[in-house]
Design a binder for these strands. Sequence first.
DNA 1: GACAAGAGTCACCGATCGGTGACATTCTGT
DNA 2: ACAGAATGTCACCGATCGGTGACTCTTGTC
Lengths: 209, 209
Amino acid sequence: MKNVPPLVQRNRAVTEQKLISAVGSILMRDGHAGLGVNAVAREACVDKVLIYRYFGGLTQLVERFGRTADFWPSEDELVGGDLARLQALPPKARYAEFVRSYVRAIRSRPLLREVLVWDAVEKSELTAVLDDIRESTAVNVISALADGVTDSPDDFFAVLAVLGAATHYFTIIARNTPVFAGVDLQSEEGWNRLETAMMRIVELFLSDE
Amino acid sequence: MKNVPPLVQRNRAVTEQKLISAVGSILMRDGHAGLGVNAVAREACVDKVLIYRYFGGLTQLVERFGRTADFWPSEDELVGGDLARLQALPPKARYAEFVRSYVRAIRSRPLLREVLVWDAVEKSELTAVLDDIRESTAVNVISALADGVTDSPDDFFAVLAVLGAATHYFTIIARNTPVFAGVDLQSEEGWNRLETAMMRIVELFLSDE
DNA sequence: GACAAGAGTCACCGATCGGTGACATTCTGT
DNA sequence: ACAGAATGTCACCGATCGGTGACTCTTGTC
């Protein structure tokens, strides 16, 4: 009897999953500063010794979390869901729309926001993993969109880097800072100002075909 | 005799100053995460109880530090040291040079860098103080430079906010992140790419008189 | 049914944290 | 000179941290 897989207790796979998702929960609720062995174990309703037994320590657990969790938006979402349609647009509209999609994709992910903070503030287990994901994604997306801008005299990729950096920064500080350089970060109106400014920047850098 | 002010011991003013500058030292060496009552007292070679007696607690001490320390560059330095000369330039060159001065002013201040990190990552005692300083400085400088751009159809101030945000972000992540979106943050060449991109952005937004 | 391996529980360690009360020393006003 | 305030020292508290050893209980195998 009871050949059915155990309903509840004594299941390493389930316990591991509880621990991994506890990392995400804590990041969302308390930020990276709240991440600790005791906190994760408490959140997962599991004894902390299992963190060491199953993962080798918090470091490795967080590493597993980084590789498992998909807080980073997919490349499809980064381009607004339809790469082919975007590619068909003339450069101006193509990149303007991409910038807007990027801002909204980043902004709408609270977990990603916290991870961005962590990534910016200190060198951690997630940093290396995240940096790799970010850079490879950036390369893929940008090369998928690059068309008709290669012979520009300007360093358009540097411009894109500037816009990406600004997006990350606004997203991060909007959690606590109400106003930056006169722009209201708590209202949609403020973010619209930023979006249009960024879209206008890429338009000014690109000819119309 | 001994009417001269005491050479060494038993001097509240000196002790307070030791504590205040210890805050700066720790921020520089260990970042905001290393700031604690014990750490500050240890750094200042002073008993921690004096932090409570003289300031009321670490919070108020940090607040005093925020108001006294001048990690934030002066408005003169933000404009490259000579406001009048800058104001005499045509808008394009004026703002391009301002952007470059700003990037370099921020980048060359390690203490400011750490404070920027702290300000971005969490709501603390310094946050409110810093936000006030930053916003009022921004208003002053921008209004001192504003001339001939008021009737632009574009939201040029939002563009400046974007550039400021990107500057802060690059400065923050350069401590740990080697590359962002293909730009090397550890080399002068990478920063030159960013500087020129930003300067080019403001140029494209401004007519030549 | 016996038994070993795996899963989970519990109690404990040393270190550090923020915070405080009690004491010793020095300075100052009269 | 003396008293009282100011300055600084020291020991201690409870809480939390990361980490570990030893135990109990469950499960699968023979």
